[in-house]
Design a protein around this nucleic acid. Structure first.
Length: 576
RNA sequence: GGUGGGGUAGCUCAGUUGGUUAGAGCGCAGGACUCAUAAUCCUGAGGUCGAGAGUUCAAGUCUCUCUCCCACCA
């Protein structure tokens, strides 16, 4: 048994997340967490809302709310959406909590103590009308390169030219539209990442379990020379630049940069979890307090890789304290929406709260796992969604459960029958499962989610194949006893399929296992150390007590009709 | 512009260290079955593996050039 700490990249607070966000970190982390729990590992799955930064302030202003009230509301909305999708978080925290304030300030203090922080003065655009400094991308104006209006301070979308806000002709605030802007000097704390390059490289050299992409991104940044980064910002909403309640002189109106405090929330959320659940957070995060045997696995979108492989480790290593660092990470690409991008700001695509009204969470979990954006972007269309759900869930799994349980209820009084002689059909089935089950477990352990789903489906299909050969309905006409073995093994397959379905489609799995009257303690993947796979499979196929009463569950997966697809496409016509 | 990923059957994708007739699911065609959500099972037709050149006894799998898509970075 291992101890596995799992974090999902923190969903940003400015709205309920879309399916791409779900598929790119929270869902795979959840599937992985569930699988690892089933294998008997001690798992702690932490997630939280990322609440600081300018976009949160602006979203709150747009909603006509105080930032903190807005964050309260959106945190609750995201918590509810997560619950709807059956996220099995051990804790769903908030980056705005007191614990994160304290830990962020503590780590900044330690960095300073280790001579890794430095105050520097820079020039930034200040909007008099808004009464605030503007981040580069919130300054707009005419592009000095192509003359296009609406170029942002960091880049012109029209010609792609990278800009400095000071270069813009007739700059104005994107927040208010005011042209009353000026360049002002401001001082910030800079993290001297350049001084950390050697230590980071040594750590990355030793890292195993990172995808090639993650390593190459990290090395590239190192090779180009790490830039020192400002870790404070001129704004009000965020974690004050203070230590033990005393503001840093000259930083009274500044806060830490959102990207500095957000990953620290992984730890702070664990502290909050420990506080509320009588747990021990240090045994997960401090290698001097028992965390050295923890495997820490991070899930994120590709855009987050650099922050997780360099920025956050810089903070932790630079503190000089024995913090647990990431062991394995899994990065995802984007789910695209009819060829384009999902967009929170442009409201393009399907959002979690809408999706749950269209179809049960299991449907989304299955499709987004089987079609996970591993390796490259994955396109989402309602047509693909319909095809996959109807085929995999309704036809292969749902129909299998339905056909054999109904037959048992109809012909065998709803009880697991005894009798019958083991034959070739059973041998074939055992051989196939003995090959597929270890592969499935391996795919979960290596976090290959598409393959895990495909293997799960293939295992479900063996049930239908077996029934075709065993054909208890044919046997029944001449030899009821021989029909019994087909039914008995079929029912045991139902139980197995339910057990295996749990990580991806937990609701349906529960319905199946309830119908089979399987007690909770027998729903695990407790397959280890029980002889070779052939022996294990044989015991799995005769696990249900003979005579046990079972029932035929209601239709597990209603099909998605063409009319549904048409209606959804119309409703979400932002498509294309 | 730099870096990385991708371009494999109609569609979505697998293809370890180069090695027998390039695989899966969906879709399609034919057949079987009738317990079942008109579900299932079997069989089959579909690919000069983006283009070109090279290395090799042998390349989807290595090298180079070109091209298209995507992401990240500057």
């Amino acid at each position: 048994m291992a101890r596995i700490l799992i974090t999902s990249a923190l969903p940003y607070i400015n709205g309920v997340k879309h399916l791409g966000n779900l598929a790119g970190s929270m869902l795979p982390a959840d599937v992985y967490a569930r699988a690892m729990r089933l294998l008997g590992h001690e798992v702690l799955y932490i997630c939280a809302t990322d609440e600081h930064g300018t976009p949160a302030e602006l979203a709150a202003a747009e909603a006509g709310m105080e930032v903190s009230a807005y964050c309260d509301k959106m945190h609750d909305a995201q918590r509810a959406a997560g619950a709807d999708f059956k996220m099995s978080y051990d804790y769903f925290g908030r980056s705005s909590t007191q614990s994160n304030h304290e830990l962020t300030q503590h780590l900044a203090h330690m960095l300073e103590k280790n001579d890794l922080l430095e105050e520097r003065v820079s020039e930034q655009v200040y909007s008099v009308a808004d009464g605030r400094f503007l981040p580069d991308r919130y300054v707009e104006g005419t592009c000095p390169n192509c003359g296009e209006d609406g170029a942002r301070g960091d880049q012109c979308d029209a010609c792609g030219k990278l800009l400095d806000p000071a270069d813009l002709i007739e700059p104005y605030s994107a927040v208010s539209g005011s042209k009353d802007v000026e360049i002002r000097e401001t001082n910030h704390l800079y993290l001297k990442q350049s001084d950390m390059a050697d230590r980071l490289r040594a750590w990355i050299d030793k890292a195993e379990g990172w995808p090639a992409l993650a390593k190459s991104i990290a090395y590239k940044w190192l090779d180009e020379g790490l830039h020192d980064r400002a870790i404070t910002r001129d704004m009000k909403w965020g974690i004050p630049v203070a230590y033990k309640g005393v503001p840093r002189p000259g930083f009274e109106d500044k806060v830490f940069y959102v990207w500095f405090d957000a990953p620290i929330e992984y730890i702070a959320a664990t502290k909050d979890w420990a506080e509320e659940n009588n747990g021990d957070w240090q045994s997960w995060w401090r290698t001097d307090k028992g965390a050295d045997d923890v495997t820490y696995v991070e899930f994120m979108g590709k855009d987050n890789v650099a922050f997780h492989t360099l920025s956050f480790p810089t903070t932790l290593i630079g503190s000089g304290e024995p913090w647990k660092l990431v062991d394995r990470l899994k990065a995802f690409n984007w789910v695209t929406w009819y060829g384009g991008k999902f967009s929170t700001s442009q409201k393009r695509g399907v959002f979690m709260d809408q999706a749950i009204d269209l179809a049960p969470s299991d449907y989304w979990r299955w499709h987004l796992t089987a079609n996970a954006p591993e390796g490259s972007d994955a396109g989402f269309t309602f047509e693909d969604f319909q095809a996959r759900i109807n085929s995999d869930l309704a036809n292969v799994l749902g129909n299998f459960v339905n056909r054999i349980t109904k037959y048992c209820v109809g012909k065998f009084d709803g009880k697991v029958p005894s009798g019958g002689t083991w034959g070739e059909a059973e041998d074939t089935l055992v051989a196939e499962l003995a090959t597929r089950l270890p592969k499935l477990i391996d795919y979960y352990e290596t976090m290959e989610f598409r393959k895990a789903a495909a293997e799960t489906r293939a295992i479900w299909a063996t049930g239908n194949e077996y029934l075709t050969v065993a054909a208890p309905w044919t046997q029944y006409k001449t030899d009821i006893d021989q029909a019994a073995i087909g039914v008995r093994i079929g029912l045991n397959l139902v139980a197995l399929f339910g057990v295996l379905a749990q990580p991806i489609v937990p609701d349906a799995a529960d319905k199946i296992l309830d119908a089979m009257n399987i007690p909770a303690e027998n729903r695990t993947w407790n397959y280890f150390d029980k002889g070779d796979w052939e022996m294990r499979v044989k015991s799995i196929l005769d696990a249900l007590p003979h005579g046990l009463e079972i029932s035929a569950p209601e239709v597990l997966f209603a099909k998605i009709e063409d009319a549904n697809v048409e209606e959804w496409k119309k409703r979400f016509s932002g498509a294309g």
